[in-house]
Design a protein around this nucleic acid. Structure first.
Lengths: 116, 116
DNA sequence: TAGATATATAAGTGTATTATTATATAAGTA
DNA sequence: TACTTATATAATAATACACTTATATATCTA
């Protein structure tokens, strides 16, 4: 971890809990290599759209991800300005690449233009 | 994070969830500088003994901490052989030192001989 | 403007988590 | 051996969490 600043222990625990969910952790890992919209995550996780919206909202509330609208789509990306971003990189570097999930979408023709 | 091995994403999420609790995260931070027994954590957190036992058991189940009996006491310490230990160090280095908690116990005369 | 698409929010439900109380086990001591 | 201390385990209750369904909002397009 490059970051040397000290973070309140309770605040940090909340970040760890936030990342301690398989779906959210995978979302963040995917966003580390590709910005993405909600609809793609819905396909990837085979879950409902509100479930994904709720996960990304939690990530956004803590400043881990940010959003930008492009037409109808809202593109999510990692917030590199977050005070947790350096720590996040420590987490992500030990996780297996999730690129295959986007590749699978591509094969099925479910890749959305907004996220290419 | 020094560790370069890739860890299953779900498994890693479970470790993050495990650490994503204020009490457990503080326990681990304290153990990083002092081995400790359950009774001291009970004093520090002003909670019940079973609550602490359950927290350390969860940490032990995942191999984050290990125990060794010394008479009536069971001394807990970080398990440096854990595959998560290098990552744990990344987490702990950004947390404020918790030594003052043990100092307070000392002042109150509640420091247990086993943990000196 | 009406309909379609993408996303967000609200309400409700089932499950997981954490704490408590009560009890069991294990070691030390009189 | 009886009593005390330290810890673990079991049962239970309160709370938190993640999902679902239903609905609202925002943008695009015919």
């Amino acid at each position: 971890m490059q970051q040397e600043s000290v973070i309140e222990i309770e605040e940090f625990a909340n970040i760890l809990k936030l990342l301690g969910d398989k779906t959210r952790l995978t979302i963040v890992k995917i966003l580390d290599s590709h910005d993405c919209c909600v609809c793609e995550f819905v396909e990837i996780f085979k879950t409902s759209q509100p479930a994904i919206s709720q996960h990304v909202r939690k990530l956004k509330d803590k400043g881990i991800v940010k959003e930008s609208r492009r037409g109808q789509w809202i593109i999510y990306s990692l917030n590199k300005e977050s005070e947790y971003y350096p720590f996040l990189q420590d987490v992500l570097k030990s996780l297996p690449d999730q690129g295959y999930r986007l590749d699978e979408l591509e094969k099925q023709g479910l890749r959305i233009s907004c996220c290419e």
